[in-house]
């Protein structure tokens, strides 16, 4: 769902970084932390207040993998596909999530609850394979545990 953007909030973010275009990336990170994605009105505001070309905003917002121009789900599932996780079955884990959720990688479920993504190493290699759901790290996941992980989050209070 597209978020309703509070431009005052965007202005505060800009102010907190001294309205310096060098901090475009941290500003976008703060905005994304707020809305789970980068809403266009917020990006337009950045362009306007920082007095930089919109192409620069567009370049940065589409280059870095953490930024999304589309709204994400309430729970963001990150399947680690680092080397250690890959060898210990991460591709099977990702397949299981796709099958159970009925979405592709980078897709969001229709109810807006889950977004599935992969990440190139969470640095928790000794716990491989690893899955992160929002801030929770799940170590030594196996494909049969995938369903349980999804159910646990789906059962949480909305």
């Amino acid at each position: 769902m597209q978020a309703k953007v509070n431009l005052k909030l965007v202005d505060e973010v800009i102010k907190s970084w001294g309205a310096d275009p060098a901090f475009l990336i941290p500003m976008m990170q703060d905005i994304q932390a707020q809305y789970n994605y980068l809403p266009r009105p917020a990006l337009n505001r950045l362009q306007e207040k920082l007095n930089i070309p919109l192409t620069r905003v567009s370049e940065v917002a589409t280059f870095y993998k953490t930024f999304s121009l589309k709204p994400k789900g309430k729970y963001i599932i990150q399947v680690c596909t680092g080397t250690a996780c890959h060898l210990r079955g991460a591709p099977r884990i990702a397949d299981s999530f796709m099958r159970e959720l009925g979405i592709e990688v980078n897709g969001t479920t229709k109810n807006g609850l889950f977004t599935l993504s992969t990440v190139n190493c969470l640095g928790a290699c000794a716990l491989a394979p690893v899955v992160k759901v929002n801030e929770d790290v799940h170590g030594q996941v196996s494909s049969d545990k995938v369903k349980k992980i999804i159910e646990a989050y789906a059962a949480r209070k909305k």
Binding site: P21, A22, F23, L24, I25, P26, M28, Q29, R56, E59, V60, F63, Y64, K65, T66, F67, N120
Partner: peptide, 25 residues
């Protein structure tokens, strides 16, 4: 501290510096 934006190439020093300048890596 600057947080990276999620781009492996930014581990490369000249790309990292571009990223610190607020640009693509």
């Amino acid at each position: 501290i600057n947080r990276g934006g999620g781009a492996f190439v930014c581990g490369e020093s000249s790309a990292l510096m571009r990223s610190l300048e607020g640009r693509v890596g």
